[in-house]
Design a protein around this nucleic acid. Structure first.
Lengths: 130, 130
DNA sequence: CCGAATCCTGGCTGATACTG
DNA sequence: CAGTATCAGCCAGGATTCGG
């Protein structure tokens, strides 16, 4: 309680800023496919993965969503796209150092999720039961 | 599958399971307001916060979204709801131990976001510029 | 093989108004 | 004060088709 007085104003303002870093990252990673693509690329890292391979490794994703996801990740500097000028063209994707560094924090979240998922499901069942 | 052979089959299958723990957590935390509410409650922890206070501390949220967010967090056992039988009624919210434990992993993500947001924005500007 | 373009739908979200 | 109900708009996401 030196200067901060949580009772009056904890001022966690950064989180509410439209340009808040956490907000931006959550918007990115919180999507339906982003985390899966990142994980697949992280597992393959530092190797590259072709579009069709990627699609096979992410069951259920459509071409559209895979393209879209990859483009947004590329835009944010998390993924590198390399086109091989053959016919038909072969496109390879890989994680940038930045993208790879994100896998750590995601891993922490994954670990938490796996450790507590049973409690969550139990709480959910309890809540729904009443 | 005891030996890991990332080249042939990394089998990250758990992530693709509809009941995948990470998926569930991301679906929860990835929402627009969940992370903010959790952070505000974590800052106040172990104290309680009233509905109106909460609303004041999450600028821009509507009553509807706050109610909805709190209910989903309560359902998953992350938040406790305590009703004081006065007139008018006063409702207090607080983080459960489970909810508080989630603030750690979220903190890791926040730290990563703050450390790398400039790189992301730079990459974005670069990508959009071309 | 890669991915862009189009159409379409369900769910999330916000604004407003109402109840206890 | 706390919460619900209703209506309307937007956008992520899926299916399909076409192009390079």
């Amino acid at each position: 309680m030196t200067t901060s007085t949580p009772d009056t104003d904890p001022s966690p303002g950064d989180l509410f800023d439209p340009a808040c870093p956490t907000r931006q990252v959550l918007d990115r990673v919180g999507g339906k496919w982003e985390s899966m693509v990142i994980k697949v690329l992280a597992v393959a890292s530092p190797g590259e993965v072709r579009f069709a391979d990627l699609r096979r490794r992410v069951p259920g994703i459509s071409q559209k969503m895979l393209s879209q996801t990859l483009r947004s990740l590329e835009r944010d500097g998390l993924v590198t796209r390399r086109v091989e000028p053959t016919v038909p063209p072969a496109v390879h994707y890989s994680l940038t150092p930045l993208g790879l560094s994100l896998d750590g924090p995601l891993g922490v979240l994954r670990a938490w999720a796996e450790r507590h998922v049973l409690e969550i499901e139990a709480a959910r069942a309890r809540y729904d039961g009443k």
